[in-house]
């Protein structure tokens, strides 16, 4: 399963090479051409097919290859490693996790002082990243320096697997789910030029999408995402943001984008006509590649649509396979109608 391979692959922002290689392999037989740009985006192009192909129409689909992770900043005198988060990580999820560092996948653990030794007040204290270290079992600073370099990226050592009846768990489902969906979407033909862009550096400011869109100048853009989910039971009747199992989530607005209403309506109508379950992302939170693409050059009407994903930006996340498949189905049905907007 491609999603499994992608989830297990390692690609923190700025270092997406391993993920990119998998994706090149997956798409090369289905697209007319592809290239890798300066920031490391993989840009695949499918030329318009069909008699009524409208030439000037270019549609960009973006899914980001990068994941959040850690970067090694310093070797302590005793061989422990200091690090900074790459992308938005809540430091509270880091304690007692395992990581793999650098090209050689040096294993490490983020250890914490045992509960036995904690003062009562310490137990209530949140540990920020600058108070944490990675232990690779090095004997000394020199030993550690020989194994790990400053600037090396670390990823969570999480293995993808199924969970429950319909769900899968793994790291980096945000946004490898979008990448896997995009690969499926690229296997069909469309009556316009379709650019499937696997973007770099989304988690540090949607930087890849920005320069890719500059080069492509799309007419419309869709970001395919793994998005926030807050569907745990709550006392108050308030928004769950998205629900796992409720179908692909359409963004009408987030912190980076006011989705183009025509594209939102197109997705909603397509879902209804084809009886594909869908939901809105019921919060104005977060940002995606679409928010950067929409601002490129003279502007690009854009929308984001996502697989609801629990526990994103942590070592392990969870999504429903049905939601994932419905995202693909929805996009495949909706895309041909873009030409009629």
């Amino acid at each position: 399963m491609l999603l499994e391979k992608l989830s297990n692959a390692r690609g923190v922002s700025g270092n997406e090479g391993e993920v990119r290689e998998i994706l090149i392999d997956a798409v090369k037989d289905h697209v007319d051409e592809y290239r890798v740009d300066t920031l490391g985006n993989l840009i695949a192009r499918k030329k318009a097919k069909g008699a009524r192909a409208r030439k000037p129409l270019r549609v960009m689909l973006a899914a980001h290859m990068d994941e959040i992770g850690l970067m090694i900043t310093h070797h302590d005198s005793n061989g422990y490693l200091r690090f900074d988060p790459v992308g938005g990580i809540d430091a509270r999820v880091l304690l007692s996790k395992t990581v793999l560092i650098g090209k050689d996948k040096v294993p490490g653990v983020i250890g914490v002082k045992p509960i036995h030794l904690l003062k009562a007040s310490e137990r209530q204290q949140v540990l920020e990243t600058d108070a944490l270290t990675i232990d690779i079992g090095a004997k000394s600073k020199e030993d550690a320096q020989g194994l790990v370099k400053i600037g090396d990226y670390a990823t969570f050592a999480t293995t993808f697997s199924s969970i429950g009846t319909d769900c899968v768990k793994g790291k980096a489902l945000d946004d490898r789910a979008g990448c896997a969906a995009l690969v499926e979407i690229l296997k069909r033909d469309y009556p316009f030029d379709l650019y499937g862009v696997f973007t770099a550096q989304e988690e540090v400011g949607a930087r890849g999408a920005r320069v890719a869109a500059y080069a492509i100048e799309p007419t419309y853009a869709f970001a395919l995402e793994g998005t926030v989910c807050d569907d745990s039971p709550k006392k108050k009747d308030v928004s769950p943001v998205t629900r796992v199992g409720g179908g692909p989530a359409i963004t009408f607005a987030d912190n980076s984008l006011l989705s183009d209403r025509r594209l939102v309506d197109l997705l909603v109508e397509t879902a209804r006509e084809n009886k594909i379950p869908y939901q809105f992302k019921q919060a104005v939170a977060g940002g995606t590649d679409a928010g950067r693409i929409t601002l490129v050059k003279e502007g690009v009407p854009s929308v984001a649509v996502a697989v609801p994903t629990r526990y994103i930006h942590s070592p392990v996340s969870l999504l429903s396979k049905r939601d994932f498949e419905n995202l693909i189905a929805l996009m495949i049905k909706a895309l041909p109608k873009v030409a009629k907007i």
Binding site: S256, L258, T294, L295, V296, K297, E298, G299
Partner: peptide, 11 residues
Amino acid sequence: GLRGATTSAYG
């Protein structure tokens, strides 16, 4: 976020 001005000025 000044989005319209960003794109219209580019044009």
